[in-house]
Design a protein around this nucleic acid. Structure first.
Lengths: 127, 127
DNA sequence: GATGGGGGTTCCATTCAGTGGAAGGTCAAG
DNA sequence: CTTGACCTTCCACTGAATGGAACCCCCATC
């Protein structure tokens, strides 16, 4: 199957798939004319990548996860460790973002939002 | 004052301050020897930038906010509009992140994390 | 056989907001 | 006079793609 076909199946744009090949996450066969040919396995791998990326794993983590996925002798502890590190990162991000949101929401609530220049948002930034 | 001095005051590394100059957020004087000289006003502007960035405003939003800050005829509504757009972006991010976190936490909880290969995390990614 | 349209290919630049490092100029102290 | 801590510019790199240009390939139609 061609790149746009596999892209539709895996839910990834061709550009991204070429990029994943470039960084070695996938190595599709080539036809005589230079076109990439994707097997069902390739499609499956790409779908795996899309879902892992959607969960926020970095590309390098995806690489590790794919490696573990194809390793029958893996220990689930290794997978779990990667996931837990990622979860910690997400939690940290959530904290930061929540903090921002609270501050921002307070400032917005305090701002009249009319035609006058007085503004608690700017006042806070200039504090 | 020199760049590292103002950096300490504003809480920004020299590299970042040079970058802000490059993109026109600040235009410090220069001494005969080429060194940048920062006024109190510059320091204030930089601190404003640091706080706005810490709230997650993009650099372009910071540029607008600085413009409004220095405009006595501004309407607070304009500031509020920028802030509200940003809040919406943060809320969207929070939703995405929260969704990721939930899925990830469920998968982690379901994974034994032992030496056996069976792993719900990988199973889900390969679904 | 020419042409057109919709694929595919590579390579380079751009995004965002900095950060790292090299090579070299300046300044105050010892 | 040298040392070390500054400062300067310029270029490359980060992550994870995305946009665009220039060019190739294949099939259908005229």
């Amino acid at each position: 199957m061609n790149i746009s076909e596999v892209g539709k199946r895996a839910g990834l744009p061709p550009k991204t798939i070429r990029f994943y090949e470039e960084i070695g996450l996938i190595t599709p066969r080539r036809e005589a004319n230079g076109y990439r040919v994707f097997s069902e396995k390739d499609a499956h791998r790409l779908a795996f990548l899309r879902r892992a990326r959607a969960l926020g794993f970095t590309v390098e983590e995806c690489r590790q996860l794919l490696g573990l996925y194809h390793d029958d002798t893996r220990a689930s502890a290794d997978v779990k460790a990667i996931a837990r590190e990622h979860l910690a990162r997400i939690d940290a991000q959530l904290q930061d973002l929540q903090q921002m949101r609270n501050t921002l929401a307070d400032l917005i609530a305090a701002c009249a939002g009319d035609s006058r220049p007085d503004c608690p948002i700017l006042r806070d930034l200039a504090r």
